[in-house]
């Protein structure tokens, strides 16, 4: 078994003629948390869209679990074991919490025990059971994020892509959300996340990737990136070296 669950190899992609990713490369270790950081416009979210088949990769390749998956359809990637929690609010506001969860299992095989998996997720996150019949629009920001993560887990993915999990959440909820990610890692799920809150994210991560203008600048252990003075400079003397 290879040690890396995902390899992004020299990919180029963007919107129209404008490329955002200009030869981005990095690896995601199996069973670990890897965080992608970088200044605005570095291509952090774009790289997720490219990996998940939402944005065409024009050059380079994406390898997941030993097989090439470049430009595969999201549906196929879900079936192979990648799930993606996009940035912002991603619930169907007028459906109930339970139905929102259920839709996360759309790509599940016929023999998958969806009801059983929902049951065990509700066991783990009691809020989901308590609010199962409520419209998703009535949930707080933190509850919605929890619902999104739980929904992403329904297919029992090998790799989870999470874009900005902490955005819009209170410090307490950020802590809780990061705690859930650590639990997932302990259960063997590999996690790749993008975070604005670089310092906090790197503190719970095993590895870090620093992107700038669509290229990989640094790829190293999370601790090494936290200690790297160049990273502080990249953020204009900001978050990492500071606080």
């Amino acid at each position: 078994m290879e040690t890396d669950i995902l390899a992004v190899e020299d990919i180029v992609g963007g919107y129209g003629k404008q490329t955002v990713l200009n030869g981005t490369s990095f690896r995601v270790a199996r069973g670990a948390i890897t965080t992608v950081i970088g200044p605005n416009g570095a291509g952090k979210s774009t790289v997720f869209k490219a990996v998940f088949g939402l944005l065409r990769v024009q050059r380079g390749r994406v390898v997941f679990d030993g097989r090439e998956v470049t430009n595969l359809d999201p549906r196929r990637l879900l079936e192979l074991g990648i799930s993606y929690v996009p940035q912002g609010r991603n619930v169907f506001p007028e459906l109930t919490v339970l139905h929102n969860l259920e839709l996360g299992a759309t790509a599940a095989g016929r023999d998958a025990n969806v009801a059983g998996r929902i049951e065990s997720l509700m066991e783990r996150f009691p809020m989901l059971r308590r609010k199962a019949g409520a419209q998703a629009s009535t949930l707080s920001g933190g509850e919605q994020k929890l619902l999104e993560i739980a929904r992403g887990l329904l297919l029992e993915p090998k790799l989870m892509l999470i874009d900005e999990p902490s955005i819009g959440l209170s410090p307490l909820l950020v802590k809780e959300t990061f705690g859930i990610l650590q639990d997932l890692r302990a259960k063997g799920v590999s996690i790749l996340m993008v975070e604005q809150n670089a310092k906090r994210a790197l503190e719970i991560s095993d590895f870090g990737v620093v992107l700038e203008l669509g290229r990989t600048r640094i790829e190293a252990a999370a601790g090494a990136i936290l200690a790297d003075p160049r990273v502080g400079q990249l953020f204009l003397g900001g978050h990492i070296a500071g606080s």
């Binding site: 549906r75 079936e79 996009p86 169907f92 506001p93 459906l95 839709l103 996360g104 759309t106 790509a107």
Partner: peptide, 22 residues
């Protein structure tokens, strides 16, 4: 389920795609 997938598509097509809804 199909009906709810249609509602989901109506409420947030980008998300529906991410979840593998046709």
């Amino acid at each position: 389920r199909t009906g709810r997938s249609m509602q989901a598509t109506a409420q947030n097509p980008a998300l529906a795609r991410v979840l593998g809804i046709p």
